[in-house]
Every structure is written in C-alpha cells, then in structure tokens.
Design a protein around this nucleic acid. Structure first.
Lengths: 149, 149
DNA sequence: ATAGCTGCAAATGCTTTGCAAGGCC
DNA sequence: GGCCTTGCAAAGCATTTGCAGCTAT
C-alpha cells in the first residue's frame, strides 16, 4: 500500500483547508481519512490516537474536529443528545444508528432524494440539510431462523 | 373553553401511565397537553411552569419528562447535540428545525412513508424509529417579495 | 402507614475556554 | 520573529443522582 502518497494527500487536504500541518492534525487526519469513511466521536478518536502513539490532548481533538468541520472535511451528525458524532463522508446520505452499541453507519446505496418528497420549507427559510437517522435495536431473539411461517 | 374536562382528561392520562397525579405532574401535563402539539426542552418547560406560578424544580421537570416519555406520552427528538427536545406528538412524523432560533416544528401533512423507500436494516436488527430532521436557515434577504420572476 | 415524589445541592459527563509554552512559516 | 497551535487545567452547561422531607393512596 502506498503509505507516502497517503501522507502527501493528507498534507494537501490540510493545506486546502488552510490548516497548518501540525503533528497532531496530520495524525488525526491519517486516522480519519486513511481508509474509507468513518464515524467517530471526539473521545473515540482521542483514544485511537493515543493507542497509535500520537500524543494529543482531548481538547486538541475537539478543536481539530471542529476546524475540519468548518472547512468542509467533516460533517457533524446529531444522533444522541449529549454527544457529537463526526462523519468523513460529507455528501448527502443517511445513517443507521445502533442505539445499544452507539455505532453509526452509512445507509448503503445512493441517498433517497427526499427533497423532492418533502413539503416546501416555511416562508423566509431555506433547507440547509436533511438528516435521516434510522434508529436500530437488536432483534430480541436470534436463534430461530427456521421457525418463521 | 372547557377547563374542567381538560383537567379530567389530564388526570386520566396520568393514571393510564401509572403516574401519581401530583401537583407538579398535573401542572406540567396541563402545559404540555393543554392545547395542540408542543415541542419543548426541559429548561423551557421549567421556565414556563415558574411563569405560571407552578412551584417545581428543574430536576422534577427532567424526571417528569422522562417518565412521560417512558410511558409513551411524549417522544424524544434529537436535533442538537447537548440538548433534549420532547414532542407531544408521538405519532410518526417529521420535523423542521430552525437552527438560529432553536425552534422545532412538525412538518405539516401526513408523514411520508419512508420505511418503504429505505433499505432494509442490517441482519440481526430491527428499525425502531426513523428520524427525519429538516434543518432550516433564514433566507439571507427578506425584502424582495416583488422581484421574483 | 407506606410507597412513591419532590426539592435541593452535589455530582457527572461531555465540551469549551484561558493562558503559558511550543511549533510552523 | 511572529503568529498560529497545543496542552493542561479550570470553567461551563445540560442532565442525573442521593437523600431527607413531603404527599397521594
């Protein structure tokens, strides 16, 4: 796998956002944008960074996440009162939220174009974003794959 | 307006939920279910109660809101990280959220049946709830009602 | 009478902020 | 060198909890 091109891509990304390529921001960006799309909380990312040997404070993680959100590199997703989730996929899409585990995942497939189905916004306002969160719960029973009619 | 029948309806509602009709719960229920559907935060409801002369602590407001949510009288809506909103309309419907003012309103008209449009949940899980929040922002300019083609 | 509620204040959990020290251009 | 960043610790905010006293049945 091309580790150096990844590094370069991350530096370019930060430069494009007008953020200085500090050790902390490079490390966090690597974790966030290293492979595929991710959904993280500040605390989770902080723990991951420490586990990888990146010395960074929680406050800096919060700062970085908000700066990146402001720069359009991340999108904030509201699924739980009292917790911030950040999504590396900034395009229009929907989410599954597993309430028991706190896991947030993208809904596969192209986003349904809800805008066409939804009523127009009240006068004097404009639609900024449509959030769709599908809240999931575990099925009560798992071991009866045969018994259904 | 029939003030006494309202009172009776509220007492019945509390009884059905298995909650004792205390002065605080009756007062809060009156504010919540007195007329039409409402969207409140704990703090907002607390302020309203105090303004109406109901002596109640914020902690009791929180307790009551959660008890009522558990009893199915209210539904919790997550629109902002760090704040709980409660909705007296527990049926399936969607929301407009005015980010600048913090105002939450129901989307008029019958809810779109998203379930039919959405992909199936991952194996081992079941859809508990589908939340649709349409985030609104004020239109930048307000004073050109005539200039539109 | 007794089980359940309430109020207060303290505690919690997540997030933000202030300021001195350090790092990038 | 100057300005942006970081880290730490303290502050902030919304919510929850513990416990003594009160209340509905």
């Amino acid at each position: 796998m091309p580790a150096v091109p990844d590094q370069k891509r991350i530096l370019e990304r930060l430069a494009a956002a007008g953020l200085r390529p500090t050790r902390q921001r490079i490390g966090l960006s690597s974790l966030l944008f290293g492979s595929g799309h991710r959904h993280v909380t500040a605390e989770h990312l902080h723990g991951e960074a420490l586990a990888c040997g990146l010395r960074v404070s929680l406050a800096t993680v919060y700062n970085a996440l908000h700066q990146m959100t402001g720069a359009g590199m991340l999108r904030e997703v509201v699924v739980e009162a009292g917790r911030f989730y950040f999504d590396t996929n900034t395009s229009a899409h929907h989410h599954f939220f597993h309430e028991e585990s706190g896991l947030l995942t993208d809904v596969p497939g192209r986003a349904i174009h809800l805008e066409a189905l939804l009523p127009p916004p009240p006068p004097g306002t404009r639609v900024k974003l449509v959030d769709v969160v599908i809240r999931l719960e575990k099925l009560p029973d798992e071991g009866q794959a045969v018994l259904q009619c």
